[in-house]
Nucleic acid binder design. Structure first.
Lengths: 157, 157
DNA sequence: CGCATGCTTGGTACATTATTGCATTTGGTA
DNA sequence: TACCAAATGCAATAATGTACCAAGCATGCG
């Protein structure tokens, strides 16, 4: 289990370094939004982050949250995760790791790493697409939902 | 490579069987939408399907396309795929298989099956989440984009 | 074959999520 | 402190998805 405070500090440092390197202003908004995102182990949507930082950044606009998160993604500080619900989720952890999407509540949680998930990347040889990275998208029932109700029906292929 | 016509026929038969079994009306809309989706190897959004069936189903409403696709998903005839863009993509192939999302154009394409991608499903033992299935989400450059422009920069971990 | 029934459809309105344009403010630097 | 570039806030707009209800159609029965 990674240390939450250390991780957050690392991300804030990265943000700081990035702004320095590219001559971008290190605004309060960017700091607080990164802080909020890095503190979470779930993978919030832009609006969820907005709700979270609203009390901390009085008068912050939803647009800014969307824009800042997109900027983080563009600079590789944060990754955007797709889910079957039509919303973008954000993840401050850009290292290769895998996710579980709950079929009940739609929440996305991290799956602890396991060597069995290390698969070879398809090579770019030949004349096809080029693969750069991958993430495994598990589908199932999250711990919270599993113990909140009865077990789900067996998968019927 | 699966035979396109045969696959389409199978899906239409499945639709037919499902409606029979559940006493649901087999409407032209459902037939044409399934036909359109099963004919495609890419993974269109609801609106893309809507554009495609509009000429075939004069007067069809966007609502119906969304509703029918959701119904297919609910009955397990079709799966919904998430992408980092905030839109739902639909796939008539519900067997376990993997996808490539193009970082240039956002298109989602199938990745041919490979045994190396067969990973063990995390067991439900212990007191955690329960995993039912998985799909590998590859990230890279699709064949079309790769040969339309210069190669992408190397991944900087 | 024609009718009754229930589910589906079309259409509008609405909700949610995300993006754009522009005036103002702020962070960074000298 | 003052300047400048970039970010922010705000409002409007786009894109995507959902709810509601009257009208239509598929299915099954007489």
């Amino acid at each position: 289990m990674r240390d939450a405070n250390e991780f957050k500090k690392t991300k804030l440092d990265q943000l700081h370094a990035l702004c320095r390197a590219k001559g971008l202003p290190l605004t309060v908004q960017r700091t607080v939004i990164m802080d909020a995102l890095a503190a979470r182990t779930d993978h919030p949507t832009a609006d969820e982050i907005y709700e979270e930082v609203k009390p901390l950044l009085t008068g912050v606009s939803r647009t800014t949250v969307y824009r800042v998160l997109e900027a983080f993604v563009a600079h590789g500080l944060v990754q955007k995760i797709g889910s079957s619900a039509a919303k973008a989720h954000f993840d401050a952890d850009v290292a290769r790791h895998h996710h579980l999407e709950c079929i009940r509540c739609g929440a996305i949680s991290d799956i602890p790493h396991c060597e069995a998930y290390d698969i070879p990347l398809p090579s770019s040889e030949g004349n096809r697409h080029q693969v750069l990275d991958y993430a495994i998208h598990f589908r199932g029932v999250c711990a919270r939902c599993r113990f909140a109700g009865q077990d789900p029906p067996e998968e019927s292929a």
